[in-house]
Amino acid sequence: MPPPDSEPGRLAGTTLSRNAANIYRLGIKELWSLARDPMMLVLIAYTFTVSIYVAATAMPETLHKAPIAIVDEDRSPLSLRISTVFYPPRFDAPVMIPLRGIDTGMDAGDYTFVLDIPPEFQRDVLAGRSPAIQLNVDATRMSQAFTGSGYVQQMVLAEVTEFVQRYRGSTPLPVELALRMRFNPNLEQSWFGALMEIINNVTLLSIILTGAALIREREHGTIEHLLAMPVTPAEIMLAKVWSMGLVVLLAVAVALVLVVQGLLRIPIEGALTLFLAGAALHLFATTSIGIFMATQARSMPQFGMLAVLILLPLQLLSGNSTPRESMPELVQYIMLAAPTTHFVALGQAILYRGAGITVVWPQFLALAGIGAAFFTIALSRFRSTISQMA
């Protein structure tokens, strides 16, 4: 004779197996439905390829390989020293041109900057006469002209100051500041732009995909077919969560490997698997948000307007665009309830600083709790919506 409690245990195991099978099959249905939607496929492809490349390479404030020419009329050790401080990635290697080549080169657009070092420049500097160096700037290239002119002035003044101090044997300063740029030695803004664009797009696409999937079923009338099947609202929701989350997660992995590391040559310090694990927890929360928003909206236009109201605060106040420390304290406390705040923190820690699980476990724990809360709220709203339709 089997023990008395063996039958309930067997029934519970059978129920769990049936639930898992329903969630799997409903998720496959969602994937097939997505595969038959060409606009969504184009959106996914664009979001994790072209959008990331544009965000990394089209940042106007970045000074990257600015063309510069130098007219060295002094031909002294000091002028030679100034000529050697301009190098990639901020500037192209300087081109030495004659004085008569300034107007020709700038008219042709060959150079953004032309530095004219006058005759007897070194002798006048050492004599304390404060000679002038002429910097010609092509102001039609606004972003490079504004940022680059400041860089050129600082670099020339720094070299002249150091040269004069060494030549005259001046007393060194009591403190010397040694700068060490960690994680991004050349201050390349493209590194920040590409990875933050991925983090933004994970939130954006997961909410849109899950919300559109539910609204599409309502518009096509297939939600009534689901109600006639032996499936529960939780199974329907979980199917949408895992299927749409899996699509976004695979797109993130491809973007990190092919676009970020392959095409843009941006180094990633931490483990991709750890970042993808954090992204999966974040997707659990954002897909639940997408389903909740879809239960509030009656059509795709309404869902789009609602998404704007939700996505903008989630992205702008998460620490992605500006540090959270610079925001009002009330906003900082409120945004602790948003999954994007913790996802941005763990993404920056893993991708930029190479952090391990011992560093980012608080963010993982917060994402799990926030995801469970949003899933519970969305499930409650989803059940009430289905009961109204039944």
Results as ranks from 00 to 15, higher is better:
250 L>K: 00
290 G>M: 10
273 T>G: 13
324 R>Q: 03
327 M>G: 01
245 G>F: 10
248 V>Q: 08
235 E>K: 08
217 E>Q: 12
251 A>L: 04
255 A>I: 01
246 L>G: 15
283 L>R: 10
224 E>C: 06
227 L>V: 14
223 I>G: 02
338 A>H: 00
339 P>T: 05
245 G>S: 15
295 T>R: 09
305 M>Y: 06
344 V>M: 08
238 L>H: 08
335 M>N: 07
262 G>P: 02
271 A>L: 13
257 V>Q: 10
283 L>G: 08
303 F>I: 00
288 S>A: 15
313 P>Q: 01
273 T>M: 15
289 I>N: 04
330 L>E: 04
338 A>D: 09
296 Q>I: 15
312 L>A: 04
245 G>V: 13
290 G>K: 03
280 A>R: 05
285 A>D: 00
345 A>G: 02
230 P>W: 11
259 V>P: 07
330 L>M: 08
289 I>G: 02
228 A>W: 07
308 V>I: 11
259 V>C: 10
277 A>Y: 05
324 R>T: 08
307 A>W: 02
311 L>F: 01
349 A>N: 03
335 M>L: 08
270 G>W: 08
298 R>C: 06
265 R>W: 13
308 V>W: 00
283 L>M: 14
335 M>E: 04
269 E>T: 15
265 R>C: 12
288 S>P: 04
246 L>V: 10
317 L>A: 06
292 F>T: 05
338 A>K: 02
288 S>Y: 12
288 S>W: 12
223 I>F: 12
286 T>Q: 04
320 N>P: 07
283 L>Y: 09
334 I>P: 00
274 L>H: 07
264 L>F: 07
305 M>T: 03
255 A>K: 05
274 L>I: 09
341 T>C: 05
276 L>R: 11
262 G>W: 12
347 G>K: 09
324 R>D: 00
232 T>R: 11
242 W>V: 15
321 S>F: 14
299 S>C: 01
336 L>T: 02
349 A>R: 09
243 S>P: 05
329 E>G: 05
233 P>W: 14
331 V>I: 12
315 Q>A: 09
228 A>E: 11
234 A>R: 10
251 A>N: 00
306 L>P: 01
343 F>M: 02
335 M>G: 03
239 A>C: 10
342 H>P: 00
324 R>I: 04
255 A>Y: 02
311 L>Q: 05
287 T>C: 15
250 L>D: 03
267 P>Q: 06
317 L>C: 12
277 A>F: 12
342 H>I: 01
278 G>Q: 13
